[in-house]
Amino acid sequence: MAIAPAPPLLSASSLRHAYGARQVLDGLSFSIDRGDVFGFLGPNGAGKTTTFHVLTGLLTAQQGTFRLEGRPVRAGDRTLRSRLGVVFQAGSLDLKLTARENLVLGAALYRVARAQARRRAEQLLDFAELSDRADEPVERYSGGMRRRLELARALIHGPSILVLDEPTAGLDEASFQRAWRRLDALRREEGLTVLVTTHRPEEAERCGRLLILHGGRAAAEGTVEELRRRVAGDVIDLELAEGRSPELSRAALAARFGGDVRLSGRTLHLERTRGHEWIPRIVEALPAGALQSVSLRRPSLADVFLQVTGRPLAGGEAPERPLPRTLSPRKELGMLLRR
């Protein structure tokens, strides 16, 4: 007797939302299995933040449906909300309270019994490496300590789905690696399903499944490897010297070698199998001094993004919507800096 496959843990279909005339979510559908690390990759303006707000119930999408373990649920449904642990990009702690008080307060919002909340807070303080300063007001904490406490607070009620909005934005490389080691350990030990929005290709690489968000809909979806295979072979990056017209050089190369030649900033990208054999021919085809540098590498998710959407991931797209009032000025500043 065949056993019906388990329904996905969480799925959404045809989410649509507009701010005025601007369609921010335009028929977005996705489906997330238990235990996945699922990433929404896209630049600012692709609909990531709106997706995050709709998922967490901060915003009700104008159209679309959610299913939790196969059962239809309203967006922002209480059952759904009680299963989520949410980490915001900007700080959301009470700075006047201690770390322990923040955790216990967070637990109370989810009706965790007091004794259990204290036990769980103890474990999570240990996990976040904050045990020795647990009874200090959070305003004395460093940025890194606050981020660890934010993560701990999102876990205090034992959620089954952890949702993180740009979790490593603004972190240096070492902190980035540490943060992801922590997330991976959590996923393994607690069987958590993790949802991440990000604009960083190196962060997207850490996801099991990835959805490339472009113009409010899924431009592509798959595992990192599946998506990488969309870019054939190697990527040759040609950084043009000053004074060269990128458009003309692109046209010249496309006419000579055929195929796709993509441009981002002053760098041309060619995807070729056995890329090393192409480099001498390409260099010879261009006038002397036309190139600043040439490099060969495996395709990254930024290449995949460029290939799928025709736009660079780190590009300057319009912001997707007016910022909701709840966001802090810090987040707005962060978005401006990244743009």
């Binding site: 967490t56 119930g57 901060l58 209480r78 059952t79 909300r81 009680s82 989520l84 949410v86 915001f88 900007a90 700080g91 959301s92 702690l93 009470d94 700075l95 967070g106 919002l109 989810y110 009706r111 607070r153 709840t326 966001l327 802090s328």
Partner: peptide
């Protein structure tokens, strides 16, 4: 300060 966000996403 963002403090109300976790309250808004709680049940």
């Amino acid at each position: 300060a963002g403090f109300l966000l976790p309250v808004l996403v709680a049940p």
